[in-house]
Each structure stands twice: as structure tokens, then as C-alpha cells.
């Protein structure tokens, strides 16, 4: 029976693939959880990679809180999106520091701001992890007060807050 033989072979191939996938994912430092966080109502979406465990930078998950921090005026907003996105609209006074160009731009950033400067990073909202990556990079280079505004520019804009 060619048909039964083929079914058996497919089961073997799929079985090997699934087993190997789970083992490699379990052992790899880049592995991810079996279930990710994909609900934007609960926060930023993420596959929950195993190496994300030290992501303990505080998040601002209510837009009016970000506005309060903005109104206090002593916190620097840092835009993690691309330069183009930044130029077509950003939170007033925000500095552009695209996460992809962090290495090229961090030196001048460090010269401008002391390590105790309060910083809030943001990007394109809850489907975007760049503000998290940027916040982590900034705290790695010594900034002690870094928070993440997870609703980002779209959330800010949707509230009708000022942009520039």
C-alpha cells in the first residue's frame, strides 16, 4: 500500500521536525516561550524570548501618564523609530535615536545628557518593541532612569496631544 507507506513517512518527517524544533527552541538562548504575549490590550506584543528575562524597565501603559511626565518638562522623550518616521511627526521636544543606529549616535547622545537624565523611550505603539530595545541599550550605557511609553507616537497622536 503506497498510500499507507506515504502517510507513515509523512508522520515520521513531521515528528522529527516537531521534536527537533521543540528541543532546539528549548536549548537555544534565542528560544521563545511556547505561548507569546500577542494581546495589545495587555501591553506590548512579544514572543517572550528566553533572553528577555532581564527586561525589567518600567513601562508607562496609560497615555495620560505620559502626558503628565511630558508636562513636568524635565524628562527627555527619545524616539526609537526611523529618522523618516521621526521627521514626519513626533512628540514635541523628542530626540531622534533610531534603535538601528544606536552605535553610531550614542556617543554624541552621551555627551549631551548626564546619566541621571530622566528618559522616556517610545516607538510606534504596542506592536513595536524598538522602544524596549532602546530603553535596554540606554540603561546598558548607564542611564539610570529610563521608562518606556508603550503606546508610542500613534497613542499620543490619537489622544489629540501636541505633535511637531
Amino acid at each position: 500500500m503506497v498510500y499507507r507507506k506515504t502517510v507513515k513517512e509523512i508522520i515520521i518527517l513531521v515528528g522529527v521536525a516537531v521534536t527537533l524544533a521543540l528541543v532546539v527552541n528549548y536549548l537555544s538562548p534565542k528560544g521563545i516561550a511556547l505561548v507569546g504575549q500577542w494581546d495589545t490590550a495587555k501591553g506590548v506584543i512579544t514572543a517572550n524570548a528566553t533572553n528577555d528575562d532581564d527586561y525589567r524597565i518600567s513601562e508607562i501603559d496609560w497615555i495620560p501618564d505620559a502626558r503628565k511626565i511630558f508636562d513636568n518638562g524635565d524628562t527627555l522623550f527619545v524616539d526609537a523609530r526611523s529618522r523618516d518616521d521621526y521627521e514626519s511627526g513626533h512628540i514635541p521636544g523628542a530626540i531622534s535615536l533610531p534603535v538601528g543606529q544606536f552605535n553610531e549616535q550614542i556617543e554624541s547622545f552621551l555627551n549631551q545628557y548626564p546619566p541621571d537624565q530622566s528618559i522616556v523611550t517610545y516607538c510606534s505603539g504596542r506592536t513595536c518593541e524598538d522602544s524596549h530595545h532602546l530603553a535596554r541599550l540606554l540603561s546598558d550605557v548607564g542611564f539610570s532612569d529610563v521608562r518606556i511609553f508603550i503606546d508610542g507616537f500613534p497613542g499620543w497622536e490619537a489622544e489629540g496631544y501636541p505633535i511637531e
Partner: peptide, 21 residues
């Protein structure tokens, strides 16, 4: 949402194993 990670973990290995075979 519950299947997204499993899909992402398993599909690449199906491609790899079938390709190698």
C-alpha cells in the same frame, strides 16, 4: 494568539527537515 509561537517554532524545522530529506 496561543498558536503563534508554536507556528513560529515548528514551521522552520518542517522546512529544514523536508528540504534535507
Amino acid at each position: 494568539h496561543v498558536f503563534i509561537n508554536l507556528i513560529a517554532i515548528i514551521i522552520p524545522f518542517l522546512e529544514l527537515i523536508a528540504g534535507l530529506a
